[in-house]
Each structure stands twice: as C-alpha cells, then as structure tokens.
Design a protein around this nucleic acid. Structure first.
Length: 879
RNA sequence: GGGCGAUUAGCUCAGUUGGUUAGAGUACUUGCUUGACAUGCAAGGGGUCACUGGUUCGAGUCCGGUAUCGCCCACCA
C-alpha cells in the first residue's frame, strides 16, 4: 500500500481524480429496471446563464448528501440534473451581446436572434454544470436535461394543449403587470413589493352642475388623466347625496360620474377614490362591476399617450411632476401628504411595474389549486420543516389566475394560431398549415410561456413524459424535493398542481426546505452589496469537502446560515485531522490482513465499537429525518473526540508492538474497521477525502460511494462504556492536577488510586496502562483499603475511586485548597438540587421509575464524593 | 394589516416526542517541537437559555403575553 501521504491534506490532489473516476465509471447512473427500491431527486435546474453561488452550493450539497446516503443504503438512486432556459435572463444576456455589435434583436429578426441564443447556450450554458462537478455532485449526467430540449418542449406543448382543451388555459384582455423596461408581462409573484416613500395628493374635482368640488386622494396623480369615475362608499353620509352626480376632470375637462362601491374605505384619504380602470387593478375590477370605460393614458414604454392631452409623449414621472404643478397653479391641488406605500417593482430590473390592460394567456388556478392543497392536507406531500406547509397553503388559498404569456422570443412559443381571415383560434399538438374552418392562412401567437411553466413539469418531463417511459414508472413520484424557501411559490406549488393534474400523483413525497446563505453580518449576498462569496474560489482554496461540511454543520432545516471564513477554517482543520488520523492508521496497518484472526478485545476496543454502533444509529436516524446538521456534528465529535483523542492514543503501544503480537493484530483490526465505517458515515458529507482514504486502506473494496452503508447492530453490553468512563475520569483528574500544580510535562507523576468496589478495582487494574499512557502517571499504586489518606498530595475524587498524586515539595497547599473548594461548591450545589427532588413526594410519586432511579444514583455518587472532599478539606485547613 | 422565524458563553450556532451537572466551534488564559496532525495536544475561565405569566413532580424545550431584530405575504387609493 502506498502510504506516502503528505502531513497536510491537499484537496487538489484528489478531488478531480475521483470525480472523473466516478463519472466515467457510470457510478451516478442507474437503470430503471431494478428490483431495488427507487430513490429519486430531480435537481432544481439552475439558470443556464448562471454560475454557481453559495445558494446552489448549499442546495446541491444537501441533495448530494441524501443521494449518496441512499445509494449506499442500497436504493436504486437517481439524481437528475439539468438547466433552465431562464427566458428573460438569457434573452437579456444575448441582447447585450448583440448590442455590442451595434445590433438589436429586431434588426436581427426572430429566427436569427434565436439562433444566437442557442449559440450562446451551447457555448456558455454548461458553466454551472461544470461547477457542480467540482462540488462533487453525484448526479446522473447521462440523464441531464434542459427545459427547452425536445422532450421538455414536447411535454410543455402537451400540457398546454390539454389544459387549453379543458378550459383551464384561456386568453383574455385583463389587467396585468407590465414591466416597461423588460417589455413583457410578469406574473403576480414576480412583482416585488417594496415599501417606498411617496406622496398622497389630494385633488379637487369640481361638480358639473353646482359650485364646489369633491376631493380625491391618489399616490399616482398622472393616472387621473385616465379617470372614468370617482367612487365613494355607498354608506358614506358625507357623499351619499352625490352618488350619480357628475364631476369635471381637471385639466382635461372630461365629465365623469360619481359612483358607489363598497370597496372604498371611507376612512382612508378623503373617502373618495378616483377610478382609472386602465392603470390600476382595483379600479379595473370596479370598472367591470360598473361597466366603466377604459382610457389608456400610459403606453408600454411608460410614456403618456395621446389620451393624456397636453402631456402626450412625456415619461410617466415627468408627467406627474408637470401635472402636479399645473394642478397647483390652477388651484385644483388641495394638499400633498407624505405617504408610505408598497411599490410594485420588477423582480429582475427593479423597474416600477405599470399595470395595464392587455390580451394575455392565463391558467385558471382554482381548479388546479384545490387538489394541490388537499395533497398537503392529506399528507401526500410533507414539508420539512413542517411550518412551510402553512406558507404553501396560504398562498394557494388566495391564488389568482396565472398570467403565462411573455413578450419574449426565447422560450416555449405558445402553440396557438390565429386565422388571418376568419380569426379562428387553433391550439394543437401539431403545427397547423392553414385554418381548419376557412382554409385561410395562419399566424402563430408571438408570445412565449413563462419560464416557470416548463419548470412546473420538471419532475415528469425529465423522466420522459408524455411517453410512458420506464424511468417515469420507476422513479415517479420522486422521493424528495430539496430547495430554498424563496422558491416555494414559484416552483414547488406549481410542480405540485401540475404533477397532480397530469400524473394523478404528487411529484414528490417530501419537500425539504433550507434557508439562505447570508454574509457574516447576516445580510443577503448580492451583487450591489458586493458581499458575495464565490464557492468556486472557496473550493479552490479549501476543497469541496470543506465547503460542503461547513455548509451543513450547525444548521437546522429551514434556517438561514451565515458564512464565516473562521468556520471554513475550522472545517478545513477537521478534514486535516481526518487525514492525519488516517495517515497514522495507514502507517500502522501496512501489514494488516483483513482476513486475519481476531484476538480478544481490549477495553478500549470494546468501548470504541460500542460507541461506533451508537454513532451509526444516530447518523442514520438523523439522515432519515433530514437532520443533516446533527448527523454531521455527531460524526465530527466521534471522529475527533473519541476516535482520535482517546482510542488512537490508547492503542499506540499495542500498535508499536509493545504489548503482544496478538494485541497488535486486534488493535489493527478494530482501528481498521472503525476508521472504515467512520469514513463511510462521513462519505455523503465529504465524498472526496473519504474516497481517497478508503482507497488507501488495505483490501480492494472498490469505491466507497458504492459500499454498503454501515448497518446498526445494537450492543447490549454497555459495561465497557461505564468502565471507560471511570478510567477517563481518573485520567482527566490526574491531568488536571498536573496542570494546576505545574508538574513539568516530562515528569512522571506518582499516583495512588483507592478503589472502592470490586468492579472498579478490576477495571482499573486490567487497564492500568491507559492511565500511564494518557496521564503520564507512574508508578501507580492501587489499593482497596486506605487507612490514612496521603498528605501532601493533590486529590481527585470520582465515583468509585479516589486518586492521590503525592507532590512532595511541588504542592502548594493553597492551590490545593482552592481546587477542593471549587469542586466542593459545585458538588454541594448539585447535591442540594438532587436532594430537593428526592425529598419531593410528588416527584417520587409521579416521575417515571427510571428517572427517579437515575436521581437516586446521582445522589449516591455525589454524596460519596462529597463526603471524601469534605473530610479532606477539613484536614487541609487544619494543617 | 396578516403570517413566520430568531433571541442560549465575547462571537457564530447546536440542543426535534419535557427528565444526568445546558453543549460545540471560534476567541480568550496557562502549559506543551508528546514517534498522525501546531490546520495539533493537555488543562482552564466564560451562560439568571430576551423578558413575563402559566401548565407540570420537573421547562432552554409546551402554552399565553411583551420587547427587539429579520424574513415572507397583502389590490386602502
């Protein structure tokens, strides 16, 4: 075996090598023709325009951990990767590119432009998938998909046509969210509401038939040019008699009616609302109820139309300024109040959304939402953590129809044609040649679908639907969806209702939600703040294993986590610790024969094997419950604090052959097996270093990622743990004395250990060398009787034993008294606590027997210590 | 306006059916070139678990309220 391992772990030496071997070896790929139980995750497809950020790194690390865990457990495991065509983002990227050539997309034409986008995608679109490989993602690249590949496009078409025929997709002229910059509609959830400071303008609208005016309040005065009514609450005493009267719209001098509608809140503003059906969603709704005309005063570029009269051609904000000035000058402006309100902005470019009426395509949501909600109610789909169920349900309960058409070129073209002659609307799976009604020529709807429309089909489109593929049958419904909580509405909810509609089954059983990766100050990472951390740089510097482990430790499902370099360094140190422990093991396993006979187990062997089983159990349970942070923590603690700090130290003399050949072989066997299993437990978290170590360990066992997950075997006999605890306490006690009393490191410390029971005596006697090795104590005298307690000695009292370290000349009596005082104080405190519990009748009556017994045992132990300490204190003070 | 989360050691966080003495990492103090590791070893200091009321034999953990911070949702112009 080649053991020339460097004393520092260098991830660069191993990561790429193993990834290539795994991928080339087809280890990530599984056939759907398997008797094994399937376990499948579809990867949330990152945008083709994207490069890996820490959010992706976290999301994919979590998925990879689950996948590697289940794969080792023997599931037929599929992690299906892919990318999203990301309509607006990608199109914008290419528009920028051609702009540098002095072109725009109209000059290029739709067809040519799309060619350019595909070129761009082919050239740059795999950046992120390359980066995912660096992270160690064990997804099946042979099944990699793209939301606009042939299969996904076919699924999109099929879904559209079916929903259309069912009446769940319709076209209508409704008010939508329009982004004047992106020049497209966006859906309700793509509008981000940000609190902003603005004004509430109070404007006088004079009556037509009499003196006076009614005052309306608005935050957007420029829209008044499109007003077609003023509304008041029907019960509002102030305005009751005005209902039905006519007012004159200032500036434009248009006559508009005063109407009554209970939507109006009499307590807000003046209690009278100007109604602009073409530019406000609420007003639009009200116009429907009252059959009011629309006057469009703002166009798609956010520029005032001809209807705006003197303001025609002005930008909407320029118009506002001018109009307010004009109103003031003509005495129509009553006053201006400062007013804070939620301003709708485009999620992509932050431009203020302009609501406008336009013919668009919609998905009728109520019929789809109902079964999706039921699935959560029935538990067919379960959110982890559970609290996100409410977020999901709450959104679906209040859902409105989903606007799916986008005025873009890059995306799935809406499969609807209009007859140029008779106007017939044709929606079909196959592109029609001419009108089925009149034979006239056809024009296809120019719009494309919302990117999320195709993402919504991802769990089944990627498995081959609409074909009834073996993959689909075997892997659908998928096992779990792992994603950030920011995407529950955009994606999770939509996949659920589409999955239920088209597969009659939920797309996944569990939704595992994680939080965001924040910067060290708890802020979101963003380009504008410049506080982003590039995971690829982190991998380059610290290794993928370190990044992965750091991202999952100390984190709980659904909660955000902060990124600290200190934490990264701590994790890097852990990787190095593992590396060196393994290096040590390898140095001592060069002649180890896995098939050799096993001698009798020493106490340390028995102890570490019990602990190993407990850790196997804990880690497996935690992974089952998606408590990845807890799982990682227990491996960390076991590896460092038990395996390295105690076990390896204890077996050194045996490995060096200082005890016996048989003992050496046994230590080798236990070390080998414990280290192997630990590496397996750790593998899902740190795939590279564990593979590297695994391959160096004796025996050719192939790849660790294909090895069998350690199976928990309960060890009934916990006596080794009890015995070890006694020895550890004695050792720690002596170490403490050495430190406090400044015993020079090299100097052996003499110890007298008074054992109070047969068992304790035996445990210590049989393992005396542990104390010698780890506490540097020698000679050690064991006694069963102690008539006279040693003077001029430092003492440590543990349950079952008293340890004395004679320190003639070295001992400072005052230091010793202080030590004793401190010890006594804590024991006294604990003892009082236990006593009061045990004196409490109710406790004795109501608490479970085990708990009472535990307390009694505790009292016994504390009391024994207390007695000895008390007596010793008295004597020390006497002197 | 509603909902959710957080509040535990100087800092960052664990603590998931209520039950040993509330833990870790980091920082800090002291001592160590100990035949894997100074990215290390040993020892140590540091917490009225935000506040408040309740349920319980027993609360960091469950329930009610308050405060501060953060996030999400929302068509009062």
């Amino acid at each position: 075996m080649k053991n020339e391992l460097n004393s520092k772990y260098d991830p660069k030496q191993v990561e790429r090598k193993w990834y290539e071997l795994w991928e080339d070896g087809g280890y990530f790929h599984q056939s759907p023709r398997s008797d094994k139980e399937p376990f499948c995750i579809v990867m949330p497809p990152p945008n083709v325009t994207g490069s890996l950020h820490l959010g992706h790194a976290l999301d994919n690390t979590l998925q990879d951990i689950l996948i590697r865990f289940r794969r080792m457990q023997g599931y037929n495991t599929l992690w299906l990767p892919g990318t999203d065509h990301a309509g607006i983002a990608t199109q914008a990227r290419v528009e920028e590119q051609i702009a540098q050539e002095g072109l725009n997309k109209y000059e290029l034409g739709r067809e040519k432009f799309l060619e350019r986008v595909w070129d761009w995608k082919n050239e740059y679109g795999n950046t992120i998938t390359r980066q995912l490989r660096l992270l160690g993602a064990s997804c099946d690249w042979q099944r990699e998909r793209f939301t606009m590949d042939d299969g996904c496009s076919k699924a999109v078409r099929e879904v559209f046509v079916r929903l259309f025929k069912k009446g769940l997709i319709y076209r209508g002229n409704y008010i939508v969210n329009w982004c004047p910059k992106c020049q497209t509609t966006i859906s309700d959830i793509e509008v981000e509401h940000k609190d902003s400071k603005g004004n509430l303008y109070h404007i006088k609208y004079p009556f037509k038939d009499r003196e006076g005016f009614i005052v309306v309040a608005t935050t957007r005065p420029e829209t008044m040019l499109g007003d077609t009514a003023v509304a008041v609450h029907p019960e509002d005493e102030r305005y009751k008699e005005l209902i039905g009267k006519t007012v004159i719209l200032p500036i434009l001098n248009r006559e508009i009616p005063i109407i009554a509608d209970s939507y109006v809140d009499p307590a807000f503003g003046s209690g009278a609302v100007k109604i602009t059906p073409a530019h406000d969603p609420n007003d639009y709704e009200m116009a429907l109820r009252h059959d009011l005309p629309h006057v469009v005063v703002i166009n798609k570029d956010a520029v005032m139309t001809v209807e705006a009269g003197p303001y025609k051609g002005m930008d909407r904000y320029e118009c506002r300024k001018k109009l307010v000035a004009d109103l003031a000058q003509k005495d129509f402006l009553l006053n201006i109040q400062e007013h804070e309100y939620a301003l709708g902005q485009c999620y992509r470019c932050d431009t203020v959304i302009e609501p406008l009426v336009s013919p668009q395509w919609f998905v009728k949501m109520k019929p789809l939402a109902a079964p999706a909600m039921e699935a959560a109610h029935k538990g067919d789909v379960r959110f982890v953590p559970e609290r996100f169920t409410k977020v999901y349900l709450n959104w679906l309960e209040n859902i409105r129809d989903w606007c799916i058409s986008r005025q873009l070129w890059w995306g799935h073209r809406i499969p609807v044609w209009y007859c140029d002659s008779c106007g017939k609307e044709i929606c079909s799976m196959e592109d029609p040649d001419n009108c089925s009604e009149c034979g006239g020529s056809l024009t296809q709807d120019p719009d494309v679908l919302d990117t999320w429309f195709s993402s919504a089909l991802w769990p089944f489109s990627t498995l081959g639907w609409p074909e009834e593929t073996a993959d689909l049958q075997h892997f659908y419904p998928t096992s779990v969806l792992v994603t950030g909580r920011d995407i529950i509405f955009f994606w999770v909810a939509r996949m659920l209702f589409m999955g239920i509609e088209f597969q009659k089954q939920v797309p996944f059983y569990h939704v595992f939600i994680h939080g965001l990766v924040l910067d060290s100050l708890g802020r979101k990472m963003s380009k504008s703040l410049g506080n982003g951390v590039d995971p690829i740089e982190v991998i380059d510097k610290y290794g993928a294993d370190t990044l992965r482990f750091m991202l999952v430790t100390g984190n709980t499902p659904g909660n955000d986590l902060r990124f600290h370099y200190e934490k990264l360094e701590g994790t890097r140190n852990f990787a190095n610790k593992i590396w060196n422990a393994s290096r040590f093991a390898l140095m001592n396993l060069h002649d180890y024969d896995p098939k050799g006979e096993l001698g009798s187990l020493a106490l340390a062997d028995q102890w570490i094997l019990v602990r190993l089983q407990e850790v196997i159990n804990k880690v497996t349970e935690c992974l089952d419950k998606y408590e990845l942070g807890e799982a990682a923590r227990s491996i960390y603690e076991f590896t460092w604090n038990e395996l390295c700090d105690w076990y390896i130290e204890l077996i050194k003399p045996r490995l060096y052959g200082k005890v016996s050949e048989e003992s050496r072989k046994t230590a080798q066997a236990v070390l080998y097996s414990t280290l192997s299993r630990t590496m397996q437990l750790l593998h899902p978290f740190m795939p590279f270093i564990t593979e590297e170590i695994w391959r160096h360990l004796p025996g050719d066992r192939g790849s660790i990622m294909l090895s069998d997950w350690p199976r928990f075997k309960e060890v009934k006999d916990k006596a080794p743990v009890v015995k070890m605890r006694l020895l550890m306490e004695i050792i720690k006690g002596i170490r403490n004395i050495r430190n406090e009393m400044n015993v020079p490191p090299g100097k052996k410390a003499e110890a007298i250990i008074f054992l109070k029971s047969e068992e304790a005596d035996k445990a210590v006697k049989d393992n005396l060398e542990y104390i010698e090795i780890l506490a540097d104590a020698y000679p050690i005298k064991l006694v069963r009787e102690l008539a006279k307690k040693p003077d001029k000695a430092a003492a440590v009292v543990v349950y079952g034993a008293e340890v004395y370290v004679p320190l003639e000349g070295l001992i400072d009596i005052n230091v010793e008294i202080k030590r004793m005082e401190k010890e006594l104080a804590t024991i006294e405190k604990d003892l009082n606590l236990v006593k009061s519990k045990l004196q409490n009748e109710k406790f004795l009556r109501k608490a479970p027997k085990e708990v009472v017994e535990k307390e009694q045992q505790k009292q016994k132990e504390l009391y024994a210590k207390y007695e000895v300490l008390k007596e010793r204190m008295a004597r020390l003070i006497e002197e």
